[in-house]
Amino acid sequence: MTGSGAPEGGVYEWYQRGLQLLAGGDPAAAATLLARATEVEPESRSLREALARAQHDAGRYREAIESFARLIAANPADDYAHFGLGLAASRAGELELAAEHLALAVALRPDLGHYARELRGVRARRTRGAR
């Protein structure tokens, strides 16, 4: 950190360090650093995706939903963003929202079995809850 409280280096270094923190099992620190980077480069898809992943892994599901939603707003055909939003919504207990975005992810990438598995799981949870 510098004297101003900003991390050392530039945005790219922050991004790389955030990915290292995420891979190293410290998603909360990664989310903090990546949030700082997205303040400087708010339109960076790579930063926003890494931030959303870190927020999700840190259990900050509502924040992850917002970050994935921003990715979708920029590119409605982003299957990974729909998948991530669906996972975060599922963990937050928002099963309708989760099912909607997981179904979109499956429609965009039917070849990815883990998308379909998550959708089936959310639909099963939703059905159990409706009983």
Rank of each mutant, 00 (worst) to 15 (best):
E41W: 15
A31Y: 03
G84L: 05
A98G: 11
A23V: 00
G18A: 01
L19Q: 14
R36H: 11
A105Q: 06
L108Q: 01
L33T: 03
R131S: 13
H114N: 10
A35Y: 06
R48M: 12
G121I: 02
A74H: 10
P27I: 07
L97K: 10
E43F: 06
P7N: 02
S46G: 07
D79R: 04
T32A: 10
R62Q: 15
A130N: 07
R117V: 14
G9I: 07
L119D: 05
A92E: 14
G5S: 03
A74S: 15
A124P: 02
Y61M: 06
G25D: 06
L19V: 10
A103I: 01
P42T: 08
A107W: 00
A116S: 13
G25Q: 05
D79V: 01
H82W: 03
V106Y: 01
E8M: 10
L102K: 04
R17K: 12
L19P: 00
L19S: 01
V11M: 01
E96Q: 10
P110G: 07
D78V: 02
E39P: 00
A73D: 15
A69R: 14
V106Q: 01
D79N: 02
R70D: 12
R91C: 04
G113Y: 05
G113C: 00
A52Q: 06
E96D: 15
G93V: 05
Y15V: 00
G10H: 02
Y12D: 15
R36S: 08
L51F: 08
L21E: 12
V11R: 01
D79S: 13
N75E: 15
A105H: 07
D26N: 14
T32V: 06
A35R: 14
R131G: 15
G18K: 02
A31F: 04
L119V: 02
G129M: 04
G3W: 03
A6D: 15
A35F: 08
A99N: 04
L19I: 11
P27H: 05
